[in-house]
Design a protein around this nucleic acid. Sequence first.
DNA 1: CAGTATCCAAATGGATACTG
DNA 2: CAGTATCCATTTGGATACTG
Lengths: 106, 106
Amino acid sequence: MKKKHEYCCPIDATISLIGGKYKSIILWHLIGKILRFNELQKLVPCATAKMLSQQLRELVQDGLINKVIYPVAPPKTEYSLTEHGNSLIPVLDAMCSWGKKIIVTS
Amino acid sequence: MKKKHEYCCPIDATISLIGGKYKSIILWHLIGKILRFNELQKLVPCATAKMLSQQLRELVQDGLINKVIYPVAPPKTEYSLTEHGNSLIPVLDAMCSWGKKIIVTS
DNA sequence: CAGTATCCAAATGGATACTG
DNA sequence: CAGTATCCATTTGGATACTG
């Protein structure tokens, strides 16, 4: 997902940030919500814990989501969309609408 | 890009069809156009010929693009969006708009 | 022109076990 | 709870050479 060279087009830029296998799914679940790690695990059952934490880490690095760690026992973390992440909502909505159509069709 | 299990959400379904590294870029270039293989190669320089033909084949299989082979010498083929492919335009547009924004910002 | 074949390197992803 | 570490299998992707 990281590219050092220049993008060949705007779509390329978008894909390089949200093209990860589970990234758009994670972002979609975070729209208007604050979720903890195990809540995301339940919502994205197709991703293993390893994959989930990896993708979350990259999304944090790319400034699309916030991660807040509460220094309590047992550990508690919360993930939410940043402003930048919120700007993706139109993209996620379009993907979701199209996905719904092909699910009922198939 | 093929999944036998059920999708965990609509976004998942969309990703499984257009989540390939170059698929959305190819589709975007085909909006309102009919392009030949070598034209697509120039437009998507980040993809090798192998990758391009592979992704095109999958897109044809998934019913998103048409491939027309003209029985002439030298060989000539043309790729275009199907009706189903056209229904993706809102998704591609959203991805493109967002990509433009992050390119100027970065 | 429009690809395919082959070989190989790198990235991705899953299972299991473990930690603060 | 919220992860990380390790190992390993699969997938992806690039380079090069070749074909109808």
